[in-house]
C-alpha cells in the first residue's frame, strides 16, 4: 500500500530581491533589482500513512510552512514532487481540494463583521456539503469545541481562543481526510492551547484523519504527535518516532537531589552521571532503565532531603538534532 502523503526529493527555491540600506540603496533597487535564490526547502523526502499524526519541527524560516503550502497546492515545487491522496497538489483538482484542509494560526478566513455561523454556511455551499451531514458535523464540532455560545457572536467580538475554535470548525466542516495545521495554537493561552490540542487528537481518532502539524510550542508536539519530522534551513534533520528519539538522544532521566549535609561529586558518581553538584544540591543523569533502582539505593545510603525525577527538556533534544549529532532516521 502506498502512503497517503508522499514527498520525494522536494525542493522549493524563492527568488528574493536584495536591497542595500539607505536612500541610494533603495533607489538602486527601484531601478535594477538584484535577486538571490533562497532555498526554502532543499531535497526533502518523507512519507506519511493514513491516520498518522506528524509534528513538523524547526525554527523560523526552516521551510515548514513552505512544505505545507506545496502540499496544499499553493506553491509549485522547484524540483521533486509531492502527492497527497494520490493527487498532485498544484493541479488543484476539485476532488483534492474537497479532501484536505489548511489552517493557519496567523491568518483567518472567518468573515470579520459577521458571526462565524455565516462563514460556516458559505463553506457548506462551497464544499457542497449536504444539509444533513452539515448539521451532524456542526453538532459534533459543537460537542468537541463548545461552539454554541461563540458561533453566533460577531467574529470581531470574539477572543483569540474563541476565534481559533471557529476557524478550526470552519476548516473541518467538510470532514477532510488530511489536515495541514500551521501553528494552530499560536498566541493562545496555555489552557486554550491544551483544549485545541485535545480537539485535534480527538478529531484524528474519530475520523482517522491524517494530521501534519507545525508548532513553536513543544507541548503541542509532545502531546499530539508520535512521529516528528525535524527540518532546518530547508534540510531534513530527523524523521521518526518521537519517543525513540528521546530514548536515543537522552537515554536518561534527570534526578534532582537535595541533601541534609554536604556531599562530594565522587560519592555521587556511582549512581549516575553527575551533571551538577554544589555540596547540598546535585543533578544526576541516571540511565532510564536503572532510574528507580538508583534512586532507591541513593535514598537508603545517603541523607536525602528531597528528590525529584524529570524528563530531559524536549528543546534540548531538538537542539541536539539540529547540531547534527543525531542519525537521520530511527
Amino acid at each position: 500500500m502506498t502512503s497517503q502523503i508522499e514527498v520525494d526529493h522536494l525542493s522549493k527555491y524563492y527568488q528574493v530581491h536584495e536591497k542595500e540600506p539607505g536612500l541610494m540603496g533603495s533607489l538602486r533597487s527601484f531601478v535594477k533589482r538584484k535577486y538571490r535564490d533562497v532555498k526554502a526547502v532543499d531535497d526533502i523526502s518523507f512519507h506519511i500513512d493514513a491516520g498518522e499524526r506528524v509534528g513538523f519541527l524547526g525554527p523560523n524560516g526552516a521551510g515548514k510552512t513552505t512544505t505545507l503550502k506545496v502540499l496544499s497546492g499553493l506553491l509549485y515545487p522547484t524540483r521533486g514532487h509531492a502527492t497527497v491522496l494520490g493527487f498532485t497538489p498544484q493541479k488543484r483538482e476539485t476532488a483534492y481540494l474537497k479532501q484536505f484542509t489548511l489552517v493557519m494560526g496567523q491568518k483567518q478566513q472567518l468573515l470579520w463583521d459577521l458571526p462565524a455561523i455565516e462563514t460556516f454556511l458559505v463553506n457548506q455551499a462551497i464544499y457542497e456539503i449536504p444539509k444533513a451531514q452539515f448539521e451532524a458535523t456542526l453538532n459534533e464540532l459543537d460537542n468537541l469545541l463548545d461552539l454554541e455560545s461563540v458561533m453566533k457572536k460577531q467574529v470581531r467580538k470574539l477572543s483569540l481562543g474563541e476565534r481559533m475554535k471557529c476557524e478550526l470548525a470552519a476548516a473541518l466542516l467538510h470532514r477532510p481526510k488530511v489536515l495541514f495545521l500551521d501553528e494552530p495554537t499560536i498566541g493562545l493561552d496555555v489552557t486554550m492551547q491544551a483544549r485545541i490540542r485535545e480537539f485535534i487528537g480527538e478529531y484524528n481518532r474519530r475520523y482517522g484523519a491524517t494530521v501534519l502539524l507545525t508548532s513553536h510550542y513543544m507541548a503541542d508536539v509532545t502531546a499530539l504527535c508520535e512521529r516528528i519530522i525535524v527540518i532546518d534551513r530547508g534540510h531534513l534533520f530527523y524523521d521518526g518516532n518521537f519517543r525513540a528519539l528521546i530514548e536515543r538522544v537522552a537515554p536518561y532521566k534527570i534526578l534532582r537531589l537535595q541533601f541534609e549535609q554536604p556531599i562530594s561529586r565522587l560519592e555521587l558518581a556511582t549512581f549516575g552521571e553527575v551533571a551538577a553538584c554544589d555540596g547540598l544540591t546535585a543533578v544526576l543523569h541516571v540511565p532510564r532503565v536503572q532510574a528507580t533502582e538508583s534512586a532507591t539505593r541513593l535514598l537508603s545510603q545517603m541523607k536525602v532531603d528531597d528528590v525529584t525525577f524529570e524528563e530531559p527538556p524536549v528543546e534540548d533534544i531538538i537542539r541536539e538534532v539540529f547540531a547534527g549529532r543525531v542519525e537521520m532516521r530511527d
Binding site: 503550502k69 496544499s72 497546492g73 499553493l74 488543484r92 476539485t94 481540494l97 474537497k98 484536505f100 484542509t101 489548511l102 493557519m104 491568518k107 483567518q108 478566513q109 462551497i126 464544499y127 457542497e128
Partner: peptide, 18 residues
C-alpha cells in the same frame, strides 16, 4: 498583502469567481 488569498485558492470553486 496579508496572504489570506491562500484560503481562496484552496477552496473547491473557481478562484476568480470566489
Amino acid at each position: 498583502r496579508l496572504g489570506t488569498l491562500d484560503f481562496v485558492l484552496t477552496k473547491p470553486v473557481n478562484s476568480l469567481f470566489l
